[in-house]
Design a protein around this nucleic acid. Structure first.
Lengths: 181, 181
DNA sequence: CTGAACTTTCAATAACATTTGAAAGTTTAT
DNA sequence: ATAAACTTTCAAATGTTATTGAAAGTTCAG
């Protein structure tokens, strides 16, 4: 068996390790406000700022979480296309590394959110637009108007997000396309 | 004391009341995936599709929730500027009504999310960009690069959202500004 | 084929978030 | 000033979601 590589953090300057810890902590809080599991966000942060790929063990140690938890969250991140497995020659263990291109990270997260948030709304609205009843009933008018407006909005949001997800960054639409022209 | 107005739902056609119930239920689920309290979203939905303003009691009854819960969520919605109090002549009770303009609803929600999600990230990144250490250390390079890229991204997102929030709808950027030109 | 090295699962448990409802507080008509 | 009508608060109860870790499953070198 090969010698284990000395853990990276032993060589980190104090300042850098503190900064990493704060970044991981902050990204975790942010993540949970985003509806993303806090630990998943922390694992993501850890991999985002690591120069080298890490193993399940590294993640467990650095975040003080269990094996099961580490495994589940890494798999979810792989599912989201934010993390990938790396094969290291001569090692049996799996190593993980995060996508570092922030635009890609952002669009992949957006894609997941669209899938979880907007797509189901669109479906429900389509269904609800078929309700029928007395067109003179003010309650009916209120309902159908609201649903129709939401549909218009959600359709537009769908196509805006699709365009965004497909877009080449262009660094993020140069000053938002000259303030939307 | 004035006669109480007969509850609206007694007069709703079956189809409409079902549709309303489904809308409320769906909006609630959506909301929770959005990091918005499920009940708050349901209260919002109820008011969104009601032709007339409702009281705390109406909300309690129609959603089967307690007085305290109803009160807290209505207040939060008022805080978000999605709901407002309505004075009904000759009544002591407070009535509530929701903003019906969907673009306004969307920008107000975006504003809250920006406040909760993006602003804190921006702050943390500003702080972390000041870390110092050996510029030859690959871990240091990985860290500063990631933080710098995130900063660039978050600044751009800030200004994009600000523009959006200020934007007159124009119906939601006509086909997303001709596919971003 | 075997067993060591590693990964995955999942039921129990812990942590966290929401909801209740009775009590306290406030407002208003008289 | 009083009391009824109404609103707000908050500690306890309930409901939801995340985490653990041991057990089961898989892979691979010899």
């Amino acid at each position: 068996m090969l010698l284990k590589v000395q853990k990276t953090f032993l060589y980190m300057s104090m300042k850098l390790s503190e900064a990493k810890a704060q970044f991981i902590q902050s990204w975790g809080i942010l993540g949970s406000q985003w509806g993303i599991n806090r630990t998943m966000a922390q694992v993501h942060a850890l991999l985002l700022v690591s120069a080298v790929p890490l193993t399940t063990e590294d993640i467990m140690e650095q975040l003080s979480i269990s094996r099961g938890n580490s495994n589940m969250n890494v798999r979810e991140l792989i599912d989201w296309n934010l993390v990938s497995k790396v094969i290291v020659a001569g090692e049996r263990k799996e190593y993980f590394t995060a996508e570092k291109d922030i635009w890609k990270v952002a669009t992949r997260i957006m894609y997941q959110r669209k899938k979880r948030e907007l797509d189901p709304l669109t479906d429900v609205l389509t269904q609800l637009s078929q309700v029928d009843g007395d067109p003179a009933d003010p309650e009916m008018v209120a309902f159908t108007t609201t649903v129709a407006n939401l549909q218009k909005f959600s359709n537009q949001a769908q196509s805006t997000l699709n365009t965004m997800i497909k877009a080449e960054e262009n660094w993020f639409w140069g000053s938002f396309l000259k303030l939307m022209k």
